[in-house]
Amino acid sequence: MQTKKNPKANLENYSKLFMQLGLVLALLIVYLAIEKKTYDRVIGELAASTLNVEDVEEQLELDIIKPPEQAPPPPVAPDVIEVVKDEEKVEETVIESTETDENDVVEVTQIVEVDEEEDVVEDVPFAIIEDVPVYPGCKGTKAQLRECLQEEITKHVNRKFNSELASDLGLAPGVKKIFVMFKIDKSGNITDVMARAPHKRLQEEAIRVVNLLPKMTPGKQRGRPVGVKYSLPIAFKVE
């Protein structure tokens, strides 16, 4: 006779359930192991000993106090003070008063007059000269003499200057300027003529023309003859 097993008594049907229970139990054991707290007794003892060392150092620092410095004792006074007499005699110097009495009469033998020389500038610009140089034939007031001098110098340059020289030099068309500076010295002569021009030939021509100016009556500053600096611009057109 063959015996039959009850299907509920077969444990293979519960294999999955047993596996799940085992997994849950393993996870629980791992969790409890992680959450468990441990304390290191050695570290606690070292911390306590370190604190004790610091407390001892603080106590030692508080106990060491520097004694106050004592001031040096005052010098001992001598028992006997000796007085030394001066052997040399000092002669007093009497300072006499330099003030004169009202009743005293001062006699003056001679009065000498000293002429003080005024500093006069050797060369004065034409714009600030008091008395301008007088061109031959000019008359009138100071303003008229100044205007006459300028007009006569301009006429002289227009008559004597070779205007055809500019075209012969092959200069570009347009207005050309020559700047001339000269001095009318204390005697009224023309000296120190200088010129600046776009060409050397024009510069030489301007100097030649200015040197042909006639001798003038010299200008005066504070009533004395002085040299007068004069600036003369010359402009001409090249076609």
Rank of each mutant, 00 (worst) to 15 (best):
K186T: 04
E204D: 15
H199C: 04
Q203L: 07
L213Q: 12
K200Y: 11
R201K: 15
E204M: 05
N189T: 11
T217D: 04
E205Y: 05
T217N: 06
Q203A: 10
T217E: 06
L212H: 11
A197Y: 11
A197M: 13
R201A: 15
V209M: 03
L212K: 14
A195Y: 01
Q203V: 05
N211W: 11
Q221M: 06
K215L: 06
A197C: 09
V210A: 04
A206M: 13
E205P: 06
P214D: 07
K200R: 12
L212W: 09
M216K: 12
R208E: 14
Q203E: 15
I190P: 00
K220E: 12
A195D: 03
A206K: 07
A206E: 12
K215H: 07
E204P: 01
E204F: 05
L212E: 15
S187W: 01
V209L: 03
R201C: 03
N211L: 13
T191S: 09
A195H: 02
P214Y: 04
Q203Y: 00
R208L: 13
N211P: 07
L202T: 10
D192P: 00
H199K: 15
K215I: 09
R196Y: 06
S187N: 09
R201F: 09
I190Y: 02
V193C: 03
L202I: 12
G188R: 10
L213I: 10
I207N: 04
E205W: 03
M194S: 14
L213C: 11
P218H: 02
A195Q: 02
R196H: 11
K220S: 07
L202C: 14
K186D: 00
S187H: 08
K200W: 08
K220A: 06
G188A: 08
R196P: 02
T191G: 01
M194A: 12
K215S: 10
V193G: 00
A206V: 09
Q221A: 03
H199R: 15
G188T: 08
A197E: 13
L202R: 12
V209G: 01
V210Q: 04
I190N: 00
N189G: 09
L212V: 02
L202D: 13
N189Y: 13
I190E: 01
R208H: 13
